[in-house]
Structures are given as structure tokens and as C-alpha cells.
């Protein structure tokens, strides 16, 4: 690669640059740019069909963007995400993700799920299987370490007692947390969560907030999440990006975004021409206050 890689400011982990994704004639994401910074929880919000999941799928390698660049600082230096194949995103760029409709390995135990996530180091330790079959090399030690790491995460998400139960048998909220733990077992620098709070009850939602904060503060991973639940977004995110009809309409702190009339208009479903009216109304209301 002779092309010069973009220099990212120190605190920026991932820069989404002019990202565009078209499916046939439909433009799902149109020239979207934003930064995801280290040590922050960034929320990507917007009404249904705004293109949030598409942005996610571009970042995590499931789609190849039509245009735009996605430079990211991984453990190995700056990489362009759009050039990596899907499984390399996790391996080389250290980006992990969860899914909107939970994708655990249902017939495998919680522990096994966390071990599958450590495939890469274990594979190396097993001498690409050959030494492992013969029972030589450091595989057993590596596996013990992997199990230790899995145990740590099972403790953190409160599932240590259910380690040997199949993932599909766990309650919904536990499955959500297990999926996050599984993603974290890949040692990511960036954790992408697709609607992590969907379907959780208020107590589980609080637990999730605590878990995400601890991931940000203790594990040093940046978190990028899609969320519909505004209370979750306002509560835990440091930075919010709002999409509507595939375009970025707002970007800033939770408070700034909440007060942005364009955001309000998008959520209330008003037409573009009316946005100006809404803006005036909001300004008027604020002035009155």
C-alpha cells in the first residue's frame, strides 16, 4: 500500500470519513463523517431506517462501503477498515461487535462461547491444530489461560454459575451480556453494540450501563453503540451522532444533541420545510424559559 495513511489526532480511535453505502438505487448512508474517540462511549442514534445498522456493518466489515474511508488505530497501527475482510476486522483491527438479534452459539455452553472468541491465540498455541492433536506444545497452558479469562468475564457479567449451561437456555438479558463478554474476549480497542438495551427490563438496563462504563474505564476500549432507548443514550454516552435518512444531522454531547431542533424534528417526523418552524418554536420556548 503506497497510499499515505491519514494521520489521526491522538484521541481519535476511528474516523468515519465521507462514508457512503448504496444498495442498487437506494442510498442507505450518504456522506457521513464522525469520530469515535478513545475512552468514550459514542452513541449512534436516529429514527428507524436512518442507516445506523448499515454504518455498523461497514465498520465491522459485513458490507463494503461504496465510498469513503474508515481509518482506525488498532494495536498494530493505523488501518483502513474498508480494506479488511470481515474476519480480519476482529483479528487485525481489534474491532468487536454484537448483533441486534443476539447471535450466540446457542447449542454451546456459555464457557464455550467465550472460548470460541479466543480462537486466534488458541489456534496459534495449538500449532495450527497439528501439535494440538499430537498433544505437544503449549496448548494446554494456553487453554487454561483462556479459561481463566473466560471465568473473569463470567464473574463480571454474573454468569459464573451458569458457565456450563447452553447459551440458548439463558434468559434474554443474560444472553445480551454474554454476547458483550464474548466480544470483549477478543481484546477489542473498539466495541460496537447494536441495540444492547433492546428488550431489557429496567434493572437489567442499569446493569448494562454499569458494564459498559466499566468496559470504557477499566478495559480502555472505546464503545460505539446503536440505541433506541433515549434514557440509556443520555445516561451513559459521552458523544452522540444522529443520523436521519442516511445523513448525519447532528453530532455532539448528549445535551447539545437533545436540544438540537433538527434532531427533535427528525424524531417527531416533520418534513424538511417545517424544520425551520420547529427550530423557531424551540428557540421561542427556550427564550420563554
Amino acid at each position: 500500500m503506497t497510499e499515505e495513511l491519514p494521520a489521526l489526532p491522538d484521541d481519535v480511535l476511528l474516523r468515519v470519513e465521507h462514508l457512503t453505502m448504496r444498495f442498487g438505487g437506494l442510498t442507505a448512508v450518504n456522506d457521513v463523517s464522525f469520530d469515535v474517540r478513545r475512552g468514550e462511549i459514542t452513541a449512534l442514534i436516529g429514527p428507524n431506517g436512518a442507516g445506523k445498522t448499515t454504518v455498523f456493518n461497514c465498520i465491522t466489515g459485513f458490507y463494503k462501503p461504496t465510498a469513503g474511508r474508515l481509518p482506525l488505530k488498532s494495536h498494530e497501527g493505523v488501518l483502513l477498515l474498508e480494506r479488511l475482510r470481515d474476519h480480519q476486522i476482529s483479528r487485525k483491527a481489534n474491532v468487536a461487535r454484537t448483533f441486534q438479534n443476539i447471535r450466540l452459539f446457542g447449542g454451546m455452553t456459555a464457557l464455550e462461547n467465550l472460548l470460541v472468541a479466543q480462537h486466534e491465540p488458541l489456534m496459534k498455541a495449538s500449532g495450527l491444530t497439528v501439535l494440538g492433536v499430537l498433544g505437544i506444545g503449549g496448548f494446554n497452558r494456553a487453554e487454561r489461560q483462556a479459561i481463566e479469562k473466560a471465568k473473569v468475564w463470567l464473574e463480571r457479567i454474573g454468569l459464573i454459575d451458569r458457565a456450563d449451561d447452553p447459551a440458548a437456555d439463558l434468559p434474554y438479558g443474560d444472553q445480551r451480556r454474554l454476547e458483550i463478554a464474548r466480544a470483549m474476549c477478543t481484546n477489542p480497542v473498539l466495541l460496537c453494540l447494536d441495540e444492547p438495551a433492546a428488550g431489557l427490563n429496567p434493572r437489567e438496563s442499569l446493569e448494562l450501563n454499569a458494564l459498559l462504563r466499566s468496559i470504557r474505564d477499566d478495559d480502555g476500549a472505546a464503545v460505539l453503540l446503536i440505541e433506541h432507548d433515549m434514557s440509556v443514550v443520555m445516561e451513559i454516552s459521552d458523544h452522540v451522532v444522529v443520523l436521519d435518512y442516511g445523513k448525519k444531522i447532528s453530532d455532539g454531547s448528549p445535551k447539545a444533541v437533545r436540544d438540537d431542533p433538527k434532531v427533535i424534528a427528525a424524531y417527531l417526523g416533520v418534513e424538511d420545510e417545517e424544520v425551520a418552524d420547529v427550530e423557531r418554536e424551540v428557540e421561542g420556548a427556550e427564550a420563554a424559559r
Binding site: 465491522t60 474476519h87 468487536a96 447471535r103 452459539f105 447449542g107 454451546m108
Partner: peptide, 15 residues
Amino acid sequence: EALREDEIACRSLGI
């Protein structure tokens, strides 16, 4: 076995 369970999740885990 993970592949049998969910291929897409496998890819997201770097397999």
C-alpha cells in the same frame, strides 16, 4: 461447531 451454530457471529469473532 461455532460455524454450525452461527456463521455470521463466527466472522465477527475473527474466525
